[in-house]
Design a protein around this nucleic acid. Sequence first.
DNA 1: TTAATAGTGTCTGTAAGACATTATAAT
DNA 2: ATTATAATGTCTTACAGACACTATTAA
Lengths: 247, 247
Amino acid sequence: MSRYDPSAFPPFAVTVDLVVLTVRDHALCALLVRRGEPPFQGYWALPGGFVRPDEGLAEAASRELAEETGLRAHSAPGHADTGVHLEQLATYGHPQRDPRMRVVSVAHLVLAPDLPTPRPGGDASSARWAPVGDLLGDAPADGVPLAFDHGRILADGVERARSKIEYSSLATAFCPPEFTVGELRRVYEAVWGVVLDPRNFHRKVTGTPGFLLPSGGTTTRQGGRPAQLFTAGGATVLNPPMLRPEA
Amino acid sequence: MSRYDPSAFPPFAVTVDLVVLTVRDHALCALLVRRGEPPFQGYWALPGGFVRPDEGLAEAASRELAEETGLRAHSAPGHADTGVHLEQLATYGHPQRDPRMRVVSVAHLVLAPDLPTPRPGGDASSARWAPVGDLLGDAPADGVPLAFDHGRILADGVERARSKIEYSSLATAFCPPEFTVGELRRVYEAVWGVVLDPRNFHRKVTGTPGFLLPSGGTTTRQGGRPAQLFTAGGATVLNPPMLRPEA
DNA sequence: TTAATAGTGTCTGTAAGACATTATAAT
DNA sequence: ATTATAATGTCTTACAGACACTATTAA
């Protein structure tokens, strides 16, 4: 028989982990928190915590995000408010991923505009934005990998973000409410780690219906000729997609 | 404080549910099993079961698949053996999704070639292939929705399959080890519910490097002029993708 | 012969890649 | 003036969509 007696189910703990990404200083960065207790005490880890008995998974992810960053998230698409993008990423349940007990973690991906500075639980020394380039690969720049299997989770989250901005308008989630074409292009360049042709990029994004809405204003915050300001349009899917260069 | 005491974690059960898809008679079909016990007794549901304390999530999904269908799955890409494709789909954890207790289910997607007939646990009357067109939407053809939130899970799995065959060679997972271009085209047509131009399709799939490998043989099992037989090539990603028609 | 499917070829429109050029600000 | 970025335009090439046509089998 393949089904267990539900009243004799094995003991599982369920958590949510958050891959919170933003673009700072032309680099894709992830939010990390320092662990204050064993296991992996002193290691950097993804923010997260246990799911409560009466809350859903996205709800738990939202709550943890608010508790650790003060951000309000929305998982429904098409919003133009101040909430950041949140979506379920994947679930990690290797039997030995947590040495204490059997923990199944439902990872979520959060995309946020550049934030002033992390204020996780009010303790600034225990949180930081780290460029993902320093964290991925076999040799982390710090020399110390992330706690648990968070390196793998982070890699999966980064890959999800990199592929999703190809065929969706999700790159605008990294931008403030009003942004210029150049700022959006620098988001793509930071997330993909490439250099894009400004002229072809401008033609592509302004030529895709519903991607950008002119807000009327202009800005010179980047220097040079004043640039038109836009807000994210209603379109969520890009067809044809934005092509990611090979190298 | 955002973290619970791990020794006082709330009681969760963790299950895997399977969206097993195949193409039969020119239609995309999903494997359903009939529930023999409450809740939802007599309802059709997705196959699945509890994750055991010592096994991983993909491992549990593989085991349930073997138990209920006799299929052997592999989750690594690029295989050309007899195993079917298996990947994690998403996790569903609404607090009231199971009336008995708090159950978090990690859904998996399985793509398989057309199978002789379901032999789930040896009881043929309790399993069937159902065309997904009859199951999705507000009015299921049977008049009765699936158990639990399995209608939503199935819809998500179908959408995943529909989008993934656009930019990957995953459609070959619906084909036998050797297949013709026409058979592969009929897979696309069944999964997407559209009619594709045979000539443009032939040009596209044979012109994409690594998608198809000529096996040397030919077949006339479809009638008409003998068709070349192919096996799945090593390529997993299609660039540029196969475009899904609008309507 | 007829009908079915397989395979190849041609034309056209769309859009991406690779450029040049002009426009408008700060210094 | 110089330099920075913004915005528009041109040319070429790749490729999808929409066709026509020939090839090879079974009934």
